[in-house]
Nucleic acid binder design. Structure first.
Lengths: 194, 194
DNA sequence: CCTACCGATCGGTAGG
DNA sequence: CCTACCGATCGGTAGG
């Protein structure tokens, strides 16, 4: 018999991950230290890292958790829309709301992780790159369905606007930025580019 | 008499800063540790930090150095152009070339620093924010001179495209990204939005 | 999931 | 600009 039940251990693991994602969104996946996490959760370091095995495994688990949140908040609300332009517009709307809101305390986790890791190598960087590529592929697929001549261009530009919005919100607290992003995304999705 | 001349000390300081900017572009301003810098420059830690006083002062000096490089590489080549649309187009061209090239080994220093610090507080974060705001103001001023109705929108969108390009180059090694960014910037600068 | 510990590295300083 | 050092924290492990 384990000293704590499987269900209890699972709950602990989830609470660690939830805190890990918040910390990493503010201070980066490298700023996510085991000791800090243990202190904030009032656990021992061994108790924290025991659920993952290593800091790198914890970083990857946090990344996967953040990607799942992104999917739930940005993709899911749009998944019910008709493929193509209606779905792209719903994605754009949910994306801006996500970046404007406080899903993560430090802004878009994926943007932060990609900037932090794009100059490094190893499993974490590879996972960050694969996650971003997957999302750009989803966008390009919808743009293709919407009849755009160059769907990857649409994906590139929507992603760029999202990054720009995240910067203005997080760095400047710019209240006009979400509307600017909406206008920019609408222009990217204007059918005359098809 | 100092043991080394003022000119020699100045040269040492410059070599430290040059390396610091490269390291920070790859691993962030927080990944820039005094011990690592000392090791790579074959100096003592005291010798490195003595030129700046503290890690924070070193980080700010590296940021200022990077901003000076950005100005030289992106602004200077365009400064000779006629204000307004011609100058904006020259900036866009130089900006894409900068992001495509290897001015910094880890890509755009300012983008990396803004993502790293946008969730923190203190002097470094404030300096990063002020530097970005200054650049957006420059862009908006030129857009106003070019007759755009909403010059801040133009600045927002150009900056977004630059961030998107930096991500695609650094994270994916995407060779098609510079052309995509050029196309996106051209569309932002298309006179029909004036 | 805890205590107690490991070697390594962190930023920084004293003194020369 | 160096050596020698400080306390703090890093990731991680042994043993329970």
């Amino acid at each position: 018999m384990p000293r704590r039940s499987v269900a209890e251990a699972q709950k602990t693991r989830e609470s660690i991950l939830s805190r890990a994602v918040d910390v990493a969104s503010l201070d980066g996946l490298e700023g996510l230290t085991i000791g800090r996490l243990a202190g904030e959760l009032e656990m021992s370091k061994a108790g924290v890292i025991g659920h993952f095995g290593s800091k790198e495994a914890l970083q990857i688990a946090a990344l996967e958790e953040a990607a799942a949140v992104f999917t739930r908040v940005v993709w899911e609300p749009a998944a019910g829309e008709e493929p193509g332009l209606p779905r792209l517009r719903a994605i754009a709307e949910a994306w801006v709301a996500y970046l404007q809101g406080d899903v993560f305390p430090g802004g878009c986790f994926l943007t932060a992780a990609s900037c932090e890791w794009d100059g490094r190598s190893g499993p974490v960087r590879d996972r960050v790159a694969a996650t971003m590529d997957l999302w750009l592929d989803v966008l390009a697929r919808e743009a293709r369905g919407a009849g755009f001549e160059d769907p990857q261009q649409v994906a590139f530009e929507l992603n760029a606007v999202a990054m720009g919005l995240n910067q203005r919100v997080q760095l400047h607290g710019d209240a006009s930025a979400p509307d600017r992003a909406r206008r920019a995304m609408e222009r990217v999705l204007r059918p005359d580019a098809r």
